[in-house]
């Protein structure tokens, strides 16, 4: 699905619960970068969560009450941008599943769905990649989250954005992409499997002696930061927007 955007709009920050409560710096970094790209940024504190944790665990009744709150918050927003591919995919791809059959809610879903973007796809869709200017002498690689990659079809966007930062040496691993093992409540319900998956994933990067691993989903970040020491990954694990915030200073 590709969403279309018009010129010069105000951006409503879509701050995932995990960013709100645990990693607020990612939210502020995204706001900063968007402002640097000359956007007006607003934030509505009535938003709390999109409902994905409950939905993904199969508890749709509970997910629905949370999702309704989300839809109400953003009903008048111009453009809704989030630092999470996973949460954006929840709204775009799974709200229609959650509210299937409820015509009134579906109208709201369609309207919000059309205006919801993950950060890197938004910047690309808006043709603002060229406006990114920055510098950082680092070697880095990218872990694109599964939901960003497979649910939203985000692929080259992240590398294109990073290519704008002078001094970046991008390492592309030889092995195919695999999941880092976060999976929301999955990593809490089945922690041993999640750890093994993180280890397998980080193996693709450990040999490269990277300064930074760029990730575009807060869930993966939290998980990978917890797993990095035991997996022997020594680089920093940063959200794309955190990296840009510093590099664009």
């Amino acid at each position: 699905m590709s969403n279309h955007v018009n010129e010069s709009k105000t951006i409503s920050l879509f701050i995932p619960c995990l960013v709100d409560q645990i990693l607020p710096e990612i939210g502020f970094a995204m706001a900063d970068v968007l402002r640097k790209l000359h956007y007006d940024v607003t934030y509505d504190a009535r938003q709390t969560c999109c409902g994905q944790p409950a939905f993904n665990a199969g508890h749709r009744t509970e997910a629905m009450s949370v999702a309704k709150q989300f839809l109400a918050t953003f009903s008048n927003a111009d453009c809704i941008v989030s630092p999470s591919g996973s949460c954006s995919a929840m709204v775009r791809n799974y709200y229609p599943v959650l509210f299937a059959g409820d015509e009134k809610m579906m109208a709201q879903v369609h309207s919000v769905q059309e205006r919801t973007f993950e950060f890197s796809e938004f910047i690309s869709a808006e043709n603002k990649v060229e406006r990114i200017v920055g510098h950082a002498d680092v070697s880095l690689s990218i872990h694109n989250s599964c939901h960003s990659m497979r649910e939203l079809g985000i692929d080259e966007q992240i590398a294109d954005i990073l290519a704008r930062i002078e001094g970046v040496k991008l390492f592309v691993p030889q092995v195919e992409h695999t999941c880092c093992g976060f999976g929301g409540l999955f990593s809490y319900k089945m922690p041993d499997i999640a750890s093994a998956m993180a280890k397998s994933r980080l193996e693709a990067f450990t040999g490269a002696d990277l300064d930074v691993l760029i990730v575009n989903d807060p869930g993966c970040i939290q998980h990978l930061r917890a797993e990095a020491p035991s997996a022997g990954f020594k680089g920093e694990i940063l959200h794309l927007v955190e990296f840009l915030q510093k590099a664009m200073d």
């Binding site: 599964c146 999941c179 093992g181 976060f182 999976g183 999955f186």
Partner: peptide, 13 residues
């Protein structure tokens, strides 16, 4: 078994 899945979507792909 349905919970032993991170919903990465590699299977669907």
């Amino acid at each position: 078994l349905a919970h032993a899945c991170s919903l990465c979507g590699a299977c669907t792909e």
